[in-house]
């Protein structure tokens, strides 16, 4: 594995990769934004094909919300260009606004109205006819399981219900491109799963493009076709969930042995493994796939050593953030495989 590649090269390569058969929904080159001395975005390149889910993953303050704000015409970048379905977000903001829907980090609902009134308000603002507005409202209430609460004041809603209503309001105008800024932050596990299901259905049923920001690897893993990791205003990695997980050294299999002799034998077989003499265990890097596990077990079988127990440790949020969103003392991070990313793009 090469470790000298500068991480952002991969992102650039992906962004400029030969166009696939799908047209590009969102593209950005060299987006920069600072507030005073604080650089929030330091040159972001993106290319998101139509009908896919893209996740921007990063810790608090990485610049995720700022990216969404620029792409959704809320603020303007200091430098760089961004196109939404071919329309420039700065020069042609109004065309962009007819195509997008935004659901922000904090539920943007009118807390003084009922759920139904909120949706009807959106219908009016999307300039739907009265009957079309009513039909769409009823349809969305039904679909989001809010029919019972339709006439209740939004102020009485739980966090999960508010988020659902928020997303429903975004959908009133049938946007082709939807920005979801941390759609499940602060939700309980049940509401989060509901939200995921709704988001996935949007793509499979209606072919919309979704730009999602999240702090949760699990969420990105669950939903996104491609994930980019943002840290301190820079993209430090980009790829599919699988590609990213492979980059994270946190993924490993831990095998425990009965005694030191077995451990020593096994350690000789797995050159790249880490030995833990005290626990009589061997930590072998792994992506946790069945193929990989079978290979490890086969290798162990071949030597005739007896493994006492085996645990699979898949990379989690901490692994991603501690490695990819580079603290200075973190282990060196390999760049995502540019070749794989480009190949995938061209085989679409």
């Amino acid at each position: 594995m090469s470790t000298t590649n500068h991480p952002t090269h991969a992102a650039t390569a992906a962004a400029t990769a030969a166009p696939g058969t799908r047209s590009t929904a969102i593209s950005a080159t060299g987006l920069r934004k600072s507030y005073g001395d604080k650089v929030v975005l330091d040159g972001i390149d993106l290319r998101i094909p139509e009908g896919t889910i893209f996740a921007l993953l990063g810790p608090n303050g990485a610049g995720k919300t700022t990216t969404v704000e620029i792409l959704s015409t809320l603020i303007t970048a200091d430098a760089g260009d961004a196109l939404i379905a071919g329309h420039d977000v700065k020069a042609d903001a109004d065309s962009v606004r007819t195509l997008i829907g935004v659901t922000g980090q904090f539920a943007a609902v009118d807390g003084l109205l009922t759920a139904e009134e909120n949706l009807l308000l959106m219908a009016d603002l999307y300039h739907l006819s009265r009957s079309e507005g009513r039909r769409r409202t009823a349809e969305l209430l039904e679909r989001f399981d809010l029919t019972e609460a339709a006439r209740k004041n939004v102020a009485t809603f739980s966090g999960g219900m508010r988020r659902k209503l928020d997303l429903a309001m975004t959908l009133v105008g049938r946007p082709r491109i939807i920005f979801l800024d941390e759609p499940t932050t602060g939700l309980d596990p049940r509401s989060r799963r509901d939200m995921w299901e709704l988001i996935r259905d949007l793509v499979t049923e209606q072919g919309v493009t979704i730009f999602l920001t999240t702090q949760y690897l699990e969420e990105a893993d669950h939903l996104a076709d491609r994930i980019a990791v943002l840290d301190h205003g820079k993209l430090v990695a980009e790829g599919t969930a699988e590609e990213l997980k492979r980059l994270i050294p946190g993924g490993h299999v831990r095998v425990r042995f009965a005694d030191e002799a077995h451990l020593a034998t096994a350690a000789a077989v797995f050159g790249i493994a880490t030995r833990d003499d005290e626990a009589l265990a061997l930590q072998i890097p792994s992506d946790g796939s069945v193929t990989n596990l079978r290979a490890i077990l086969d290798a162990l079988d071949g030597t005739g050593v007896q493994a006492e127990s085996l645990t699979v440790h898949t990379p989690d949020l901490d692994d991603v953030f501690l490695t990819l969103t580079g603290k200075q003392n973190a282990p060196t991070v390999p760049a995502p495989s540019t070749a794989t990313a480009t190949q995938k793009e061209s085989t679409r």
Binding site: T73, V102, G104, L125, T170
Partner: peptide, 13 residues
């Protein structure tokens, strides 16, 4: 101070 105005600002109104 509430999110609703940000929603309005991303709409073609």
């Amino acid at each position: 101070t509430e999110g609703i105005v940000n929603r309005f600002r991303t709409m073609s109104i």
